[in-house]
């Protein structure tokens, strides 16, 4: 396996400075029909990508009854914050009905909290344990290291379909159904990809500072927490973001183990909300407000870390 060693995001962006130069040259050429066509294609792709988000926002700010009268308007119909109030349980039943709510009381606030706990704790545990393991697999010398690493690495070959049902049975036997522990435990302790990713980084990282600290008599653990982890904060942040996205969006596993509303994440609530909408007159405005709410943290992550995500995905792929 040819693996581009370590400083992942750095190496991905390092190739960029030379590329733009070549492209600037190309850009100075006149706009040939082929290039114009390519730009049109790109514009269409961007439009198709973005339109559903715009439509989600436009609908979520509309009055659900008014939507029926004017379904094609590009702007919110009868602008109102009502749908957001409705799905957060802030709107009175009468107001909700007047604006086209289904009358079923929904309060997504609790589910948002559940999602934050689930995604937050699971990501934290997963990244923490992966960091410890990656350190042991890169900086420490011990017998059987590569063998154990190889065995753990083989887990990447085991797909979810094979383990989901037995894991459900295990969680059930442990009496952890409908609990955060049951939701979090299977992925929290061990993640082959994160261990692999961080190990690669540690291996490529200069160990001079750590060795100097060692000569000064610092213990291994102290070095790990005071020197190695701070030095690796970049890639650790990256896998944390990717982990948080995955957990926040997770649907299948919570669907299996979380039947109780007190622990259900937002994705489940959204699915239930969609399916319990009356067929004749669904509360589309409310649904879009709920969907936007579920997407919001990811949109924020995107705004703050978009560039980092793009670069790190590129790396994880080329590996």
């Amino acid at each position: 396996m040819a693996i581009t060693t370590a400083p992942a995001p750095a190496s991905a962006s390092a190739t960029e400075p030379e590329a733009p130069a070549a492209r600037r040259l190309a850009g100075r050429r006149r706009l040939s029909p082929g290039r114009a066509l390519a730009w049109v294609y790109l514009a269409v792709v961007v439009l198709i990508t973005v339109f559903p988000f715009a439509w989600m926002l436009r609908t979520a700010l509309s009055d659900n009854f008014a939507l029926i009268q004017n379904p094609a308007s590009l702007l919110p119909v009868d602008f109102t914050w009502g749908p957001f109030g409705r799905v957060l349980g802030l709107q009175s039943a009468a107001d909700a009905q007047a604006e086209g709510g289904s009358g079923v009381s929904v309060n997504l606030g609790g589910f948002v909290v559940n999602s934050v706990i689930y995604a937050g704790v699971a990501t934290l545990c997963q990244v923490f344990f992966a960091t410890l393991a990656a350190y042991a697999f890169s900086r420490l010398q011990w017998k059987g290291r590569d063998l154990v690493f190889g065995i753990l690495f083989s887990a990447l070959m085991i797909p979810g379909i094979l383990t989901l049902l037995p894991n459900f049975v295990t969680i059930k036997e442990l009496g952890l159904l409908d609990s955060f522990a049951g939701l979090i435990l299977p992925g929290a302790l061990f993640s082959a990809f994160n261990i692999f990713f961080l190990r690669q980084f540690f291996l490529g990282m200069n160990s001079e500072i750590e060795e100097a600290a060692m000569l000064d008599g610092a213990s291994r653990l102290r070095i790990l927490f005071r020197i190695t982890i701070p030095l690796a904060s970049g890639p650790i942040t990256t896998i944390s973001i990717l982990g948080f996205i995955t957990y926040w969006n997770d649907y299948f596993w919570p669907l299996l183990v979380a039947n109780d509303e007190s622990v259900q994440p937002l994705t489940l609530a959204l699915g239930v909300f969609k399916q319990s909408s009356p067929q004749a007159q669904p509360d589309w405005a409310g649904l879009m407000a709920a969907a936007l709410l579920a997407a919001l943290p990811m949109l924020l992550v995107f705004l703050v870390f978009g560039r980092r995500i793009v670069n790190s995905l590129g790396f994880s792929g080329v590996k």
């Binding site: 792709v45 961007v46 990508t49 973005v50 559903p52 988000f53 439509w55 989600m56 609908t59 996205i245 926040w248 969006n249 997770d250 649907y251 994705t267 959204l270 699915g271 969609k274 589309w284 649904l287 879009m288 709920a290 969907a291 579920a294 997407a295 990811m298 949109l299 992550v301 995107f302 978009g306 560039r307 995500i309 793009v310 995905l313």
Partner: peptide, 20 residues
Amino acid sequence: SVVILPFLISNVVAAVVFSW
């Protein structure tokens, strides 16, 4: 980054939006 946007949201959100 814009192109990657749909990858960041949940399948459930995508399913609900497209249902609409």
